[in-house]
């Protein structure tokens, strides 16, 4: 007779012991923090348009660069990971999450030297985003170009 904790049943049986993440609460936290980061982005964009006279399109670059600088600094101060435990996707999905991935990897591997440690490990976590973004943009770009011909 097969028992609850036998090898074939174990994985299923164990599910009831594993606390489910509070999905609703996590989504609320992600929504609020993610939304706030985007609001900061909007404020930065308006600032660059208003004060420096950038066009809407051109303001995107300094906005991104500023958000990235803030995120890198918060990572260096050891604050970003605490925020991320609270916000989950709310801090990972915005461009700030990308900057944190690069900065945290670079910072962590400082002990292996500036070239092999910092330089060699910087893209450990963010690399897949760049790779998949580039590959998909290539494919979609080629397809769209062919269709337009």
């Amino acid at each position: 007779m097969s028992k609850k904790f036998d090898k074939q049943n174990y994985k299923n049986t164990v599910k009831s012991y594993q606390p489910k993440p509070n999905l609703f609460l996590n989504c609320v936290k992600a929504f609020i923090i993610g939304g706030l980061i985007c609001v900061v982005g909007q404020a930065l964009t308006d600032f660059y348009i208003g004060v420096f006279g950038y066009s809407e399109k051109d303001a995107a670059s300094p906005t991104a660069a500023t958000l990235i600088l803030i995120s890198s600094l918060l990572t260096g101060f050891g604050v970003y990971d605490k925020l991320a435990q609270f916000a989950g996707a709310g801090s990972a999905v915005p461009i700030t999450g990308f900057a944190n991935a690069i900065t945290s990897a670079a910072l962590e591997h400082k002990s292996e030297g500036l070239v092999l440690g910092v330089g060699g490990n910087m893209f450990k976590l963010a690399g897949s985003v760049i790779v998949y973004g580039t590959v998909s943009a290539y494919l979609v770009g080629i397809i769209r170009y062919l269709i337009m011909q």
Binding site: P21, G78, Y80, G88, A105, E108, L125
Partner: peptide, 17 residues
Amino acid sequence: ERQFRYPTEYGGQKPAT
């Protein structure tokens, strides 16, 4: 953390388990 999981300042959200 740096060997098995993520850089120590990385913002990955850990589950309750």
